[in-house]
Design a protein around this nucleic acid. Structure first.
Length: 436
DNA sequence: GCGATCAGAT
DNA sequence: CACATCTGATCGC
């Protein structure tokens, strides 16, 4: 294959310029403190956070670009050896601090790589991004949209982050004598914690490394590492389990809150399936186990998730840093790409955004999708799978637990679970076909 | 021995 | 399991 010109969230080499959308671990696989393959372009905030994640990173390779204006790069065409100009614009992705989309212009045409993003069009700062993006692509066709298809299915409907944050505060208020733990990652959900702090006028405990990140982000006086200062603690998601909550409740009454766009699925947190089912009808503290309510968004009505009580001590709140299905739809309709590709897949399952949004494309295409026109009779599958295993057509209903069985093929260890591993795809853009 | 990568768990 | 991250095992130099 021809050597690439630029790579986005891909670190395997072979390009002249490398672009990082944000600092979550699934976008930095292959990036390390010893990075030396070429210049790394990112937002200002990402450049501030990056040395904390990668100590001793060679800062002379960092190229900080501001959001909302075109930047020109002069690269060398891999095939002809002549200079070729590439322009890039960063658009705020509203996913986590520093996260951006990259809009490219060059001989290959106009390409947009969203990275992970949220698109709450009603929020003012998202509206600003919308205007910037519209002006940037005005008059030119968007050849390819590389899209965050994490929640690219109509069953993924959830409210704005502000509304979800209110739900979190309601839960905390209704448990005045409880300690509260909230599951978070190394980056992201800061605005949720800030909202809780403001509304309840309390500090939030975080672990020491997380406090350093928060200080880098400019949050002052809101977070603490002293447990005696507050009853609300944000803890790493990997430490948030049923066992943890049950252990904490032997010492003090404690509830856990999991902010996530994913519905509370059986088996999460090592939960017993029967226990969860038996709780499906239970109610306490005024919260139904799974409330659904309707909102209007993008000219359509959507039944969005609300708080779910997953366990005696665990609530799930639909606070998501990824776009919901209706937001993805609104985004695709806005930019009207000629072609598009999801950036998230597992090795055996990929939700093709063309299935749902093909009709929004900017030029006439052979009819591939069927969702809008003839629902239920599809000429194309929304989810492409390998023959390895069966998966339900609706991912939200695909709740059958797959066995983690290991079989041997030609002497190699092989695991079905690993075959289902989710992978985040970066992209390498080459001169001719724009797709690696 | 060390970093990179993989598999599994959280 | 389509959120992201950690840990331990294994690989490759």
């Amino acid at each position: 294959m021809e050597r690439g010109l630029i790579s986005v969230d891909r670190w395997s080499g072979g390009s002249q310029a490398y672009f990082l959308t944000h600092l979550h671990a699934d976008h930095t696989q292959g990036l390390s403190s010893a990075w030396s393959r070429g210049p790394l372009f990112c937002s200002h905030l990402t450049s501030k956070l990056l040395p904390f994640k990668f100590p001793n990173f060679n800062l002379s390779l960092l190229r900080v670009l501001e959001v909302g204006s075109w930047h020109s790069l002069s690269l060398t065409s891999p095939s002809s050896g002549t200079k070729t100009a590439v322009q890039v614009m960063l658009i705020d992705a509203h996913h986590c601090p520093g996260s951006v989309m990259f809009l490219f212009r060059g001989e290959f045409g106009c390409l947009l790589y969203t990275g992970d993003f949220r698109w709450e069009a009603s929020i003012e700062k998202a509206y600003t991004s919308k205007i910037i993006l519209l002006n940037a692509i005005k008059g030119s066709k968007l050849e390819v949209l590389y899209l965050d298809n994490t929640y690219c299915h109509p069953s993924y409907a959830f409210p704005s982050r502000v509304d979800a944050a209110k739900q979190v505060v309601d839960i905390i208020i209704s448990h005045p004598e409880h300690d509260i733990i909230i599951a978070i990652d190394n980056l992201g959900k800061e605005e949720l914690l800030l909202y809780i702090s403001r509304m309840l006028k309390i500090k939030i405990w975080v672990w020491p490394e997380r406090l350093q990140t928060l200080h880098l982000l400019g949050y002052e006086d809101i977070f603490t590492t002293k447990t005696s200062f507050t009853r609300v603690r944000a803890v790493p998601r990997y430490s948030f389990t049923v066992d943890t909550l049950e252990g904490l409740n032997k010492v003090r009454p404690t509830i856990g809150i999991m902010p996530s766009g994913l519905p509370g699925i059986l088996g999460h947190f090592g939960m017993n399936e029967n226990l969860c089912t038996s709780l499906a009808d239970s109610r306490s503290n005024g919260f139904k186990s799974s409330e659904i309510f309707t909102i209007t968004s993008n000219g359509q009505k959507w039944n969005v998730r609300s708080v779910e009580k997953l366990h005696q001590y665990i609530y799930s709140v639909p606070y998501s840093d990824h776009a919901s299905f209706s937001e993805i739809q609104e985004f695709v309709e806005l930019v009207r790409p000629i072609n598009m590709r999801g950036i998230v897949s597992s090795s055996s399952c990929y939700i093709n955004p063309l299935y749902y949004f093909g009709h929004f494309r900017g030029v006439n295409q052979p009819s591939q999708k069927s969702w809008q026109k003839h629902k239920g009779v599809e000429s194309m599958s929304a989810i492409q799978t390998e023959s390895l295993c069966q998966i339900s057509h609706c991912p939200n209903l695909a709740r059958k637990r797959r066995r983690s069985e290991k079989i041997r093929i030609l002497g190699h260890r092989f695991s079905r679970v690993s075959a289902l591993r989710r992978v985040r795809q970066g992209v390498k853009i080459v001169e001719n076909d724009c797709v690696d």
